[in-house]
Structure formats: C-alpha cells, structure tokens
Simulated scan of single mutants.
Amino acid sequence: MEEVVGLLKDEAQCDTMPLEWMKSAANITINLTADALLRVSIPVGPNQKPEQCRRFRQTQWQLLDSNLPAMNNTELETEPCLDGWTYDQSVFTSTIVTETISIAGNLLGTVNGILSDRFGRKPLLVICFLVYGILGICYAFAPIFSLYCILRFLMSACVSAIYSKSIVLLLEGTSSKWHPAFVTATGLSWSAGLELLGVLTYAIRDWHMLQLALALPFFTIALFTCWISELVHWLVTTGKTECALGELQKIG
C-alpha cells in the first residue's frame, strides 16, 4: 500500500485513500499501480495534468479499460478534497516551506540575548521552557495547517532561546578552562537527545501522543530551573549588588 499512498506525480492531489475506503476496497486496489489509481480517482484538468483540488465522487473503474473510447471528465461527478491532500515525497521528503518555518523561528529566537541582558538569564530560560510546553500541547491538537505552522515557528524560537541561554548559563557560571568541555558536552547531549527521539518515535506511533510526550517534560524542567541561582556576573553588571552578595553567600 505504500506505493498507493505515495502515488503523486505532481505537487499534490486530493487524498483518494481514506482509511475506511481502503478497508472496503483493499481486494480491488491492492494490485493497482499508482498511475492506475490516480487515473480512476482524480480528473484531468485543462493542462492534461491531474486536478489538485477535485476528485471523482465515485471511483471510475471503467477508465482502466483501454478499449473504451476517451471520456470527457466534465461529464463525471466530482467533489472537493474532503480528506485532505497527498503529497509526492518520492524526490523530496521535506520542502523549503517546512524547513523555512523552523529556520525563521530559530532566527527569531536569537534576539533573546537582548531580553536576557535586561531581565536575566534564569527568568528568560524558565519562561521559554513553560512557553514551549504550552505551545507543544497546542501543537499536538492544531486543527488547521496555518495554526500548525505558526506554532512550529514559535516553538523553534523557544528552542533557539533555550539552547543559547543554557550555554550562556554554563559558560558564565564556570571557569574558562572548563568551557571547551562544557560546549562539547552540550553538543553531545543534543546528539544523544536525537537518538532518544528515534527510540521514542518507534515506541509512540501516533504523532499527537508523541508531541505530548515531548512537550510535557518541559514543565518539569521549568520547575527545576526555578531552583537555579541567577548568575552573579549578571547581577553585578546590572547593579544588583545586594542580590549578588546573597547568591555568593549561598555558594559559600
């Protein structure tokens, strides 16, 4: 069935394989090629290419008979794409649209340095963890694609801020001789996280539940971050000397 689901030769056409239809017609379509299924399901437009916004209301099996004379598609009843669209991923598994959303979000996240210099590293990090958790829950249940893209954009901005602020907290709070080790450990931790993501994805096959599993731990991390002391270096440079002394006494 993978060949059938990935049947498209153009950018996108109506999804012609809703689950219940596949179950009821599996004995018919199992041996169909992708081109044949496309022919009986999607009308041909004026440019002699499959329509992207219409599909046949009923599967036109007679179109598979090469002995029949050519039929005018306008005589056959059609309907809009009621079950969404299927995209051709035979060449590109992702597109510039999906990649650009994340990259643009990462770019937005780079402005967090200005905010952290004004309000502190710790508060901004806690807020980013909480916001990511909230956005992640909304992302898992996004009802429309435009909202999905907006949430993905904002989540990428939070990830960028979390990554940069975590490194800043480590580097500003330790001696310079430990900086190479901490930067290396940070990079390795992200790589290990991607490996664990693969394991988690294998265990949780529903992407809604997977997204929830990724978002909910951020609330616990935010709570843990609340117990981290603000950097003495930032407190001194912003004139909060009493707070800096208090943090030094805690350390001592």
Rank of each mutant, 00 (worst) to 15 (best):
L64T: 04
R54H: 11
L107T: 05
E2C: 08
E51F: 06
E51M: 10
S116N: 11
G187K: 03
E2D: 12
C14H: 05
A36N: 13
V168Y: 00
Q52R: 06
W61Q: 02
G113H: 03
R152C: 10
T186K: 07
N72E: 07
K165D: 06
F219L: 11
G239A: 04
Y132C: 01
T238I: 07
E230L: 09
V40R: 00
K165I: 08
R55I: 15
E2V: 12
P180T: 01
I204T: 09
L7H: 01
L8K: 09
V199Q: 01
D10Y: 06
W227F: 10
Y132A: 07
A70K: 03
W178C: 07
T98F: 08
L235T: 08
Q60W: 07
E77K: 06
K49M: 13
F141I: 10
I134A: 02
W21E: 10
W227L: 04
L37T: 15
N106V: 14
K23F: 05
F224R: 02
V232E: 08
D83G: 00
Y132L: 13
K49A: 13
Y163D: 15
L108T: 14
H208C: 06
L235F: 07
A203C: 13
Q52D: 15
S160W: 05
W178E: 10
S164L: 12
P123I: 04
Y139I: 01
E11T: 05
T201K: 05
F129G: 05
V97H: 12
A12H: 10
L196T: 01
D206V: 13
G136I: 08
S146V: 15
Q211Y: 02
T74E: 11
E11C: 04
P80W: 04
A161E: 02
Y202C: 04
I144W: 05
D15G: 04
W207T: 03
T59A: 14
D206K: 12
L196I: 02
Q52F: 07
N47M: 11
G120R: 11
A70V: 08
L169T: 00
L169N: 08
L223V: 14
L216A: 09
L248Y: 01
S102P: 01
N27D: 08
G193W: 01
L200A: 01
T174L: 07
L200S: 01
L124M: 15
